[in-house]
Computed example of a mutant assay.
Amino acid sequence: MDDSAVYEARLELIDFVIEVFHDTPDDAFIERLLTGATETPGEAVNDHLDNGFEELRTFIEENQGRDPGAVETELAKEYTAIMVGPRPDVLPHETFYRDDTEFIGEGLADVEASYGAAGWNPPEEYGEENDHIAVEFAFLRYLIERQRAGAEETLGFERVFLDEHLLPWVEEFTDHLGEKTDSSLFRAAAYIAAGTVAFEDEIIAQLL
C-alpha cells in the first residue's frame, strides 16, 4: 500500500468512528453501508479492527434489504438509551473513563490545551464537550491531514495526544459499550475506534 492509500485508509477509519458517534447515524450513512459501498480488509490488521470489521459485516448482513429509515429509527432509540439518557449506561467522553479527573472536570481543559497547541478548534456542529470521542477523532483527522500536507510537527502532537488522551481510555470505553449495546454497528464502531488508536500508535512510532 503506497503512502496515499495509507492516508486514505487512516482517514476512512476515523471518519467511520466520527459518523457513528457524533450523533445518531443518519439514513444516508446507513444506506451507504447497506448497499455495498463499504469494503473491509481481507487481511488481519489488529485484534480490535478485525473484531470491528466482523461486527460491521454482521450489521450489514442483519439489515440487508431493509429500509434505511427504519434502521435509523432503531439505532436512534439505542443510541439515546445507551449514550444519551436520561440515565445513560455509556458516556463516550474521555473524562468519564479517567480516574485522575472528574467527568467534564479539569481533564477537559487538558484535552482542549492539546487542541490549542496544535492550532485546532473543535467543530461547532458536533454539539458535544470537547473530550467526546467524535471530537477527539476529529482532532486526529486534522493532524493526519496536516501530516499528508507535509507538516512534520504534527507527528509530535499526535504522539502526545495518543499517549496522554486516547490510549488511556478508548479500550475501556470499547469494552464497556460492547457489554451494554445490542447493536452490532455500535460494537463495530467501538472496536474500530480502539483498533484505529492502536493502528495510529504503530504508525507514529514508525514515523518518529
Rank of each mutant, 00 (worst) to 15 (best):
D27E: 15
H48E: 08
E172K: 14
E153N: 11
Y79C: 04
A5T: 12
N130Q: 09
A28Y: 12
R10T: 08
E39C: 14
T196K: 00
R141A: 06
W169V: 00
G69M: 14
V135S: 03
T38C: 12
I14L: 07
D26W: 00
E128I: 09
D99Q: 13
L143F: 10
I18V: 07
H22D: 14
M83R: 03
T35Q: 11
G195N: 02
A37L: 10
M1F: 10
D67M: 03
V160Y: 03
D182W: 10
T38Q: 12
V160G: 07
I192F: 02
H48G: 12
D131P: 05
E158R: 13
N63M: 02
E112F: 13
D15G: 09
Y142P: 12
A190F: 00
F29H: 04
H22Y: 12
F16L: 09
T174C: 06
D89G: 11
I192K: 00
E54Q: 13
D163F: 03
R159G: 13
K180I: 01
D2Q: 14
L108M: 05
H165K: 04
E124A: 14
T154M: 10
E172Q: 15
A151G: 08
N46Y: 01
E129C: 10
N121K: 14
W120E: 07
A44L: 13
R148N: 10
V17F: 02
P41F: 04
H48W: 07
E158G: 12
A190R: 00
Y126V: 11
M83T: 04
A189R: 03
Y97P: 05
Q147V: 08
E94R: 06
I18A: 04
A188T: 09
I192E: 01
L185E: 03
E153F: 06
V90K: 00
Y115T: 08
Y7C: 09
H176S: 05
E145Q: 11
E106P: 10
R146D: 14
G156V: 04
F29W: 05
I82V: 11
D110M: 15
L108T: 02
R141V: 05
D163I: 04
H176P: 03
A189P: 02
T73N: 07
E12Y: 15
A149V: 08
E72G: 09
F53Y: 02
T40F: 09
V160P: 03
T196V: 06
M1I: 12
F173W: 05
T101Q: 06
P86T: 09
E136K: 02
T174S: 05
G127C: 08
P122T: 04
E74V: 09
F157P: 06
T38K: 12
V17K: 00
T38A: 13
L143E: 04
E152M: 12
A109T: 15
A194S: 07
G52P: 01
G42V: 01
F21L: 03
V17S: 03
A70E: 15
D27M: 10
A37Q: 13
G69R: 11
R57E: 15
H176F: 01
F53A: 01
I82A: 06
D15W: 03
L75G: 02
P123A: 09
H93M: 08
V6Y: 06
E125A: 14
E158A: 11
L162Q: 04
